[in-house]
């Protein structure tokens, strides 16, 4: 009986020790206030770079036709020189700018003829990290976690979806001349330059 009591006592003490080292309590409002300070504000960050660094980066993008020619002749060197990649691997992101004529418009994209090349300007599926990573401005190591890093892409893409695309599509017609700046994602191992897809950063219709 006495032995059992001792066992229970030791068990309870161990449980108490584990519990004490497992959880802590805090008033919720204090916690929320502390969190507010720590939370990374992606919207504010993107706003701070949108018209300055980001606009400058895409404004200085290589010409689309020249980049495609370079990729066709020297893919390795062009990936090295003009592409941005998050890590090792075959995927590279490129900034491009150019001007072309609208040849078709459908619900997902706008097809432009740029010189002798066709290019798809995405207008529906504005997702992924192409705009963030092609710009080369944002480095993953500058962020404590991938979640913060990814919210930058979400914010950039959301701006394009909500601010750029609706205005652009509302006044677009086949035959229009369109100036574009944007990003494209290419796979070095399966390089397909036939009809590249571009996530736009700016789109301007020239009458």
């Amino acid at each position: 009986m006495k032995q059992r009591a001792i066992k229970y006592l030791i068990g309870m003490a161990l449980l108490a020790l584990l519990g004490y080292n497992s959880v802590y309590f805090q008033p919720l409002d204090e916690r929320l206030a502390a969190n507010q300070k720590e939370v990374f504000d992606a919207a504010a960050y993107v706003e701070s770079i949108w018209d300055t660094e980001l606009a400058e980066s895409y404004g200085n993008a290589p010409d689309f036709s020249q980049l495609l020619t370079a990729l066709a002749t020297d893919p390795e060197g062009t990936f090295e020189k003009s592409g941005n990649a998050l890590g090792i691997g075959n995927i590279g992101y490129f900034r491009v700018k150019g001007e072309g004529t609208v040849t078709s418009v459908d619900e997902n994209h706008v097809l432009l003829q740029v010189g002798d090349k066709s290019v798809e300007i995405e207008t529906e599926f504005i997702y992924g990290n192409a705009l963030r990573d092609a710009s080369g401005l944002v480095k993953i190591n500058d962020y404590p976690n991938t979640s913060d890093f990814n919210t930058i892409s979400e914010e950039i893409n959301a701006r394009i979806r909500h601010d750029l695309i609706p205005t652009f599509r509302s006044s677009l017609a086949v035959g229009d001349r369109v100036e574009f700046e944007g990003a494209m994602e290419l796979n070095k191992a399966h390089l397909n330059l036939q009809r590249p897809e571009i996530i736009p950063f700016t789109l301007k219709i020239n009458p």
Binding site: L18, N21, Y24, Q26, L28, R31
Partner: peptide
């Protein structure tokens, strides 16, 4: 978080693993 009690219960690594 338990808003009705204005209480936040945080977990240490040991607590979360357990």
């Amino acid at each position: 978080s338990i808003p009705s009690a204005n209480l936040f219960i945080g977990f240490t690594v040991l607590g979360a693993v357990l």
